[in-house]
C-alpha cells in the first residue's frame, strides 16, 4: 500500500493465549493511543481467536476505539495463512497508517507475512516509537553501540514489532467503551499447514519478565562451575536468572533466558549483572530496571557506564562471598 493524503488509524494486532489478551498487546495499545492522539486518528485493534467476546474489554480500557474481532473455532489456534489473510484483507480496506505487533513467537512469524503481502516495511526490535514533524513514525532500534531510527516514508502501514516490557502497561480506564466489529472467519483453513498440538509448560523458574530481582550472568563466569555459582546466587535471592548471548553460545543456559535486543526485556527492581561486559544488545533489555549493579574484573568495562553500583572483581571469587554475606545478613535480621 502507498501513502494516502488522509491518515488512517493506528492498528495493533493483539495476541491472546487461552482466551487471555497478552500483556504486550495491552502495552502496544497504550503506546498506539499516544501515537494516535498525536496524529488525531483512532486506535483500532485486530484480535483473532475463539470464545473471545468477553475478553475484549481490556483492549478498550487500554485505549482502543474499535476492536475488529474474529471469533471462530477455526481461529482457535494461531494459523499463519488464515491469520495473514484476514489481517491483510482488512488492512487493504481500512488502510491503517501504523501497524504494531508484539514480538512474540507467533508475532514474529505473522508480522513479516503481513508486511510482504501489503508490500510495506517492517522494523524489528523497536525500543521507542515517535511521530516526527513530518508525521512519520520513527522506529528506534539498538544497533552498532547506539540507536538508529528506521522510517518507512512511502509505504503504509508503517509496521513495527516490539517486545513485551518495552512500553509500560497503560493505566486501564474501565469506563472506556469502544466499538466492537465482528469479522467473518473463512469456512475452512488451508490444509498446507495443520497444527497438530500446542504445548505450553508452566515455567519452573521465576519468569524473567515479572521478576523483581534479575541476576544476569555473562561469559565472565568462566565455565559451568562459575555459571552454577551465579545460578546459586539467583536462587538465594529468589531472582530470575538471565544471561547474555555468549552464555547461550557456550551452552550454559537456554536461549529463552537471554536478555536483550533479541531476547527478553526485563524491568526488575534490582538488576545484578555478573561477569558481563555490558554490550548494548544486552543492556537495552534491562534499561527499565530501578537499581542496577554490576560485577566485572575490568574497571573499564562499558557495563559500568550503565549501572548504579560497580564492583571491580573476578566474579568467580566475588559470587561465593556475596552469597555468604547475603546469608549472614538474612540470619542477622
Amino acid at each position: 500500500m502507498t501513502t494516502k493524503a488522509n491518515c488512517g488509524p493506528v492498528w495493533v494486532v493483539a495476541e491472546q493465549v487461552d482466551g487471555r489478551i497478552q500483556n504486550v498487546s495491552l502495552q502496544l495499545v497504550g503506546k498506539a493511543r499516544q501515537l494516535a492522539d498525536e496524529l488525531d486518528v483512532p486506535v483500532e485493534v485486530v484480535l483473532l481467536g475463539q470464545g473471545m467476546k468477553d475478553v475484549v474489554e481490556p483492549l478498550f480500557a487500554a485505549g482502543a476505539d474499535r476492536v475488529y474481532l474474529g471469533d471462530d473455532p477455526v481461529l482457535n489456534w494461531y494459523h499463519a495463512e488464515t491469520y495473514t489473510e484476514m489481517i491483510v484483507s482488512l488492512a487493504l480496506k481500512i488502510q491503517p497508517e501504523i501497524l504494531l505487533i508484539g514480538s512474540t513467537c507467533t508475532g514474529r512469524e505473522l508480522a513479516p507475512l503481513v508486511a510482504a503481502r501489503l508490500a510495506t516495511g517492517l522494523t524489528a526490535h523497536c525500543i521507542d516509537l515517535k511521530i516526527n514533524d513530518q508525521r512519520i513514525l520513527e522506529q528506534w532500534i539498538p544497533a552498532y553501540g547506539g540507536l538508529i531510527s528506521i522510517i518507512c516514508p512511502q509505504k503504509r502501514p508503517q509496521m513495527a514489532t516490539v517486545a513485551s516490557g518495552v512500553f509500560p502497561l497503560p493505566d486501564m480506564d474501565e469506563s472506556r467503551r469502544g466499538e466492537l466489529v465482528m469479522l467473518k472467519a473463512p469456512e475452512a483453513v488451508s490444509g498446507r499447514i495443520r497444527t497438530l498440538e500446542v504445548v505450553r509448560r508452566e515455567p519452573e523458574t521465576v519468569a524473567l519478565e515479572s521478576a523483581s530481582i534479575v541476576v544476569a550472568g555473562g561469559i565472565g563466569a568462566g565455565d559451568e562451575d562459575g555459571w552454577r555459582q551465579i545460578s546459586d546466587l539467583a536462587r538465594i535471592l529468589n531472582a530470575a536468572l538471565g544471561c547474555t548471548r555468549p552464555v547461550v553460545d557456550a551452552g550454559w543456559a537456554g536461549h529463552e533466558t537471554m536478555i536483550g535486543q533479541s531476547g527478553k526485556m526485563v524491568s526488575p527492581e534490582l538488576y545484578l549483572g555478573i561477569g558481563l561486559s555490558g554490550d548494548l544488545q544486552h543492556l537495552i533489555g534491562v534499561a527499565g530496571a530501578r537499581v542496577m549493579a554490576a560485577v566485572n574484573k575490568d574497571a573499564r568495562a562499558p557495563v559500568f557506564e550503565q549501572v548504579d553500583y560497580g564492583i571491580v572483581a573476578d566474579c568467580r571469587e566475588f559470587v561465593p562471598l556475596l552469597i555468604e554475606k547475603i546469608r549472614a545478613y538474612r540470619q542477622s535480621r
Partner: peptide
C-alpha cells in the same frame, strides 16, 4: 520500503 533516518550514540 525502510530507510535509516537518524543515528545516535546512547
Amino acid at each position: 520500503p525502510t530507510v535509516v533516518s537518524a543515528m545516535t550514540t546512547r
